[in-house]
Design a binder for these strands. Structure first.
Lengths: 205, 205, 205, 205
DNA sequence: TATGAATGAGCGTTCATTCAT
DNA sequence: GATGAATGAACGCTCATTCAT
């Protein structure tokens, strides 16, 4: 009952502004981004932005959350399916690389600034906590895949899970950054395969 | 002797300012950093900074270069010694983690902003090239270690070197970021060992 | 009707700022004038000035142009009427002296700085050309009066027109400067008559 | 007795600085001129300038005085000789045009800024008085020539001396300004002749 | 609700002036 | 005396935020 009436108009506007902000923040970073450009991109007047978000900082944090949520949702969904650990890792990485092809700048923004913001003194503790929770959720997801792989006998029982998680995340990030710098798309599926091959088999001769 | 008089005092001041700038830029990023804070931290007046660096941008670029040079020098030196690929990778990672314990924020600054700056339109092509050369030098160094490991028969002859480099760098960066967020030091030697073990042996059961 | 709506309010504000700027520039010169004082005199905040003029230099050039245009318009109009050369020169001088009584500082500003600016390297060639065109227009106007006087037989056929123009302009300027320094108004009509008498009759006994 | 021993070194240095200042002030105007450039041109260090002149303003006023004194001395000397009023006026104008060929910017600087400075609130009354005395001396000199010409019967007994002085000065200034803008020298002697011819004979047909 | 003109705190940079050497 | 590195007040300009319409 009514828990979802909302005002469709309003919410649409909110989203438009949020998306515009994501573009601008991704392109310029927090400080160099200008509220006017956000407004322009959203097709509204400067003052209107303030009807939906009380300040630049609030808009930024909302943007960050939206991006991270979306990204995490996609990654989790990719890793959620049944299948072997190898398959699920492949899906995870492929999903990330595919997203990077479309939104490299957003993902890098999120990866970089979210860290920076959870450190800043002036950000409220509640906000910081929410930022940290994303990291927990991300690492937790990968950890889950790995541990189930161990239990299934597919991965080494003595696997150093903590390091393995860092390795997966780090490799993802390294390619996201690369995508940011070169024009051409990452070959998502192939690349995911190569990464997982190496992760599983190791480098030893 | 005496071939080293030249700037006894001047160069010291230059370094003081550079170091102060590194602190501030690392803590705030380029745009949020204020020249006055740099000056304060260096113990000089605002105008003095401009006697040594002609603009905020120039100071930033100089800071970036100094940090990157130092970091790369240490990593290369660590990886340069004789020994097996395993040993050299361990040294490399240990060196990085040790540096991260002392200068996590600087390393992260360099890693993040150097990328961003090589993209910006207003930065001179010469500066961009220098920034890019750091990336080349870094990846080249790791590549060298791996290829020599292959030739020595220590690493798989069919090793996917490109992906392996990304994996090493990514893992390093992942831990540098982690160090940025938690207070306690990374156990550099132990952690390097664990990472290399996993890299070499792989995750497969 | 109504073809004049457009900017009812905006243009008024623009003019207010321009006029305030004219006062300040006239009193202090370009470099010593402060944008904040311009804003104060116009009754707006500092930032508002920049909504109408993109920089101090642009504001100055606009100011100069407005003053020169107004001044030249009035002089040309005065000299345009029918009548003998004597009458037209009288009108011209009287118009100038009358204006000097009201705006001596502006006229002197224009006379002095417009010259200086058409020399400066950093001013765009287009702007320089516009400044130069004012000088051409001014000298051209006086020249016209003199040449028509010659053709009408009222002035000597061998009149040294070039020198005569300089003499008229120089005398005008000399009195404009004098007005700048003393409080009391120039007796415009009488003075114009005395100047023209001397110009025509010469000093010879 | 000793009233003139002076320290030859010191006075030479003072003059060097003064002359350098004249160049810089003439080229840039008071506010845009920088003390460092004055020092450079004088071949001394920035601080040294302050050993000889206590402030930028004092240096400027001293510069103005030196220029004006020199200029007036030369004009007076030229007008002082025996001869008819025509000859003396010719000498006067020729001297001015000759000086303008060499020092147009200085003369214009003096003409323009000296006026401006005698108006400024912050300049001491004593300084203002000295500035005004130059104007008196200049007009007085020309007035003398004219009045002697009248007494000698060479000029009209009813000559409007006040206007005539303004006319002579104005014409001089008009050509000084012109010299400032074009590269080529004024033909001093010829131009003086043409101006005096017109002044004496008038424009009437 | 939406607008965008207006605001003013804040920052990068300059440069006259000082003072330790 | 002479130097020039250091200082810091001052100014041009930006942009997040407000508010009258």
């Amino acid at each position: 009952m009514g828990e979802q009436q909302a005002w469709p108009e309003q919410e649409a506007r909110r989203q438009e502004i949020l998306w515009a902000a994501a573009q601008v923040f991704a392109a310029k970073g927090f400080h160099a981004a200008r509220m006017e450009e956000v407004a322009e991109r959203a097709g509204v007047a400067k003052g209107t932005v303030y009807l939906y978000y009380p300040s630049k900082e609030a808009l930024f944090l909302a943007t960050l959350e939206a991006i991270l949520t979306q990204w995490l949702d996609q990654l989790e969904q990719a890793a959620a399916g049944p299948g072997t650990a190898r398959e699920r890792l492949c899906s995870l990485l492929e999903a990330n690389f595919t997203l990077a092809n479309r939104h490299a700048s957003l993902i890098c923004l999120a990866a970089q600034e979210s860290e920076a913001w959870s450190l800043r003194a002036q950000v409220g503790e509640a906000e910081k906590e929410r930022m940290r929770s994303f990291v927990v959720r991300l690492t937790g997801g990968i950890q889950g895949v790995l541990q189930e792989g161990i239990q299934a006998g597919e991965l080494r029982p003595d696997l150093d899970v903590e390091v393995a998680v860092a390795m997966v995340l780090g490799t993802m990030h390294a390619y996201n950054l690369r995508r940011l710098h070169q024009r051409e798309d990452l070959p998502a599926r192939e690349l995911a395969g190569r990464v997982v091959d190496l992760l599983l088999a190791g480098m030893k001769g």
